[in-house]
Write a protein that binds this DNA or RNA. Structure first.
Lengths: 232, 232
DNA sequence: TAAGATTTGTGCGTATGTATA
DNA sequence: TTATACATACGCACAAATCTT
């Protein structure tokens, strides 16, 4: 077997043994090349394989850093999907799974503080991080208050932008509940994880500046890829 | 932008313009490096990116070949999902999306040659090739004839194996209809393709040696990744 | 069949650019 | 400002597999 591949396997083993921990730097290419007794280019080829696998990433002038694969999803007063992901230099994408207009259930009406005779708009979406589906959201919104919500959302694919167009310039969390669930078969396929693998589920209400509820929603995160960072 | 990246983009453009066709060889690294006026290593880096994307692959001593990414799925008298994929040295996997027992529709009853009062078992599955979901199947089976079908299928995850256990040692296609559809949002997410991207849809009946229908089913294939190879 | 040419794979060395510490 | 660290690019040499004569 080639030298660079042996070194790759050796480094990978060290990484899986947590010899180098997520967020930490590896020794420099110069040090590694001396340690393994090879040219720097040879080490670079080994490292490239680990970068391709997303285990490492490099910063020019700084060093090579062990990737913490779990995405740190910030949950605070203002939770913004796309912004959260762009802030960490990843690429966000939202796709619509389905939508529905129907009468509110008791719980939905209570949480949205609307009459239970009123209709709600339900939207289910998949959120992707770097093209990997990892977040599923089910939103319930008053259809009476925002009759054009879906039409706009379909084009914008962003809650923040849609609400802005509808005149809601800011909104924030009233509360957030975090629970754990197991993925069922449909969720496993949609979220690209295995059946029964753990999901983080958040249930929350977003309200406007007048404290009026806008949406009552639930979001599922793939536990293996995402960690929730709670803020004040 | 770096030279190797510009060359990568140039080659990628040529490939998408079908200047080099699937199965064909590219000019050798030596020729390419002279053509672009760079060192051979520089060309190799450009090519490596295209190899990583699965667009090219190389054979030592032979050359660099344009990959035909589309999987050749054989449709003939006997169609066997797992075997089809194993035969081409890929890894098959089946996951269950959902199942349902209900009364047969008129069309289902007619195609299964059963009384329309009878119940049918509906199973929706996702078929993966090398872990990439690319095939969705919706099967309708007589629940009266095979009351234990789902219990067995759930463990076996194979129609062939399930039927064998149920005493049906062989089965074959009565007919197959091929049509084209566009992926809707749910299909796009399940099959990891874009909305409106083309799907190949087959509608067919599998029957046993006594010509009695076993299943009336529909299968969707992602057109970008799969081509159907019709056999006699 | 065998020898030689071609083509990709691996490895080292050197030099310079660019970003960070 | 200086030193360090990663990024890019060229050149040389040889190995390994394949193709051609």
């Amino acid at each position: 077997m080639s030298i660079y591949y042996q070194i790759y396997e050796s480094l990978k083993k060290d990484l899986s043994n947590n010899l180098y921990k997520p967020g930490e730097k590896l020794p420099s290419e110069k040090v590694l090349s001396k340690r393994f007794g090879v040219n720097r280019h040879t080490i670079r080829r080994s490292l490239q394989l680990l970068k391709n696998e997303g285990i490492l990433f490099s910063k020019r002038g700084s060093g090579i850093i062990v990737h913490d694969n779990r995405f740190k999803y910030k949950i605070g007063k203002r939770v913004r999907f796309s912004q959260n992901i762009l802030n960490e230099n990843y690429v966000p994408e939202t796709t619509i799974l389905r939508s529905e207009i129907r009468k509110a259930s008791k719980i939905e009406a209570k949480n949205l503080e609307i009459n239970s005779k009123h209709e709600i708009l339900l939207i289910e979406t998949i959120g992707k991080i770097n093209n990997v589906p990892s977040i599923k959201t089910k939103r319930v919104i008053s259809n009476k208050r925002f009759p054009d919500f879906f039409d706009i959302f379909q084009k914008q694919l962003s809650i923040t932008k849609t609400l802005k167009i509808l005149g809601v310039n800011d909104f924030f969390r009233k509360n957030t509940l975090v629970t754990a669930e197991q993925a069922d078969s449909i969720q496993a396929n949609l979220l690209h994880c295995k059946i029964n693998s753990p999901l983080l589920k958040t249930t929350y209400i977003n309200q406007d500046l007048n404290l009026i509820p806008i949406e009552y929603s639930q979001t599922w995160f793939v536990g293996e890829r995402i960690q929730l960072a709670l803020e004040n």
